[in-house]
């Protein structure tokens, strides 16, 4: 799916994360900041990247400000941000679960 506008999802509250996604011409850039980056940084990034891959997002700037969210929350916030940033939201629901 093509990211056509900047979009936000989530909050900065504890156990949540704020995802900001924006159009980008050259590839997928993901910037992660997390309260628990030393323990879980690579894992959070993997969850986010998997989610983006399943949604077919290959060109975007994704900035995540994580406050210790669980995997399911990370995926949910990334999905929601993508849904707000595209013109046609046509997810493959079975692939997302």
């Amino acid at each position: 799916m093509k990211i056509v506008r900047e979009a936000l999802a989530g909050t900065l509250e504890s156990s949540d994360l704020l995802v900001r996604i924006a159009p980008l011409e050259d590839g997928l850039e993901l910037v992660l900041k997390s309260e628990v980056i030393h323990q879980f940084g690579p894992h959070i990034e993997k969850v986010a990247r998997d989610c983006l891959a399943r949604l077919g997002v290959t060109q975007a700037l994704v900035v995540i400000e994580d406050k210790g969210a669980l995997d399911c929350v990370v995926a949910a916030r990334v999905q929601t941000a993508v849904s707000r940033a595209v013109d046609e939201w046509t997810p493959d629901w079975s692939a997302l679960s």
Binding site: E6, L8, T11, L12, K67
Partner: peptide
Amino acid sequence: ECISLKVVSEMIHVAHDLGHD
């Protein structure tokens, strides 16, 4: 009480709605 994080979250969303990313 972590009010500040809630206030800033809210402000970021409001700014986005006003077209300021």
